[in-house]
């Protein structure tokens, strides 16, 4: 099962997808805010969003799982 992990510590600014959405590899799925910068995170593989583990405003650490795809 594919996952999208935080590439750095930061705050979840926007979640661009919902459970059940079909996403393509390389598509932006979450925008993190770290050090006053917006950092878009992409899905590495195509799939369907199975679970969203964070919400807007959550603080995440490097390596935390944000989304699960199937």
């Amino acid at each position: 099962m594919a996952k999208v992990e935080a590439s750095m510590a930061g705050t979840v600014m926007q979640i661009l997808v919902s459970v059940g959405d079909r996403v393509e590899a390389g598509q932006d799925v979450v925008i993190l805010e770290s050090m006053k910068m917006e950092v878009p995170l992409q899905a590495e593989q195509s799939g369907t969003i199975k679970e969203i583990k964070v919400e807007v405003g959550s603080f995440v650490s490097d390596g935390d799982v944000l989304l699960e795809l199937e």
Binding site: A9, G10, S34, M35, V39
Partner: peptide, 8 residues
Amino acid sequence: PERFLPSP
């Protein structure tokens, strides 16, 4: 320095 991504 390449992608200007934050590095806390």
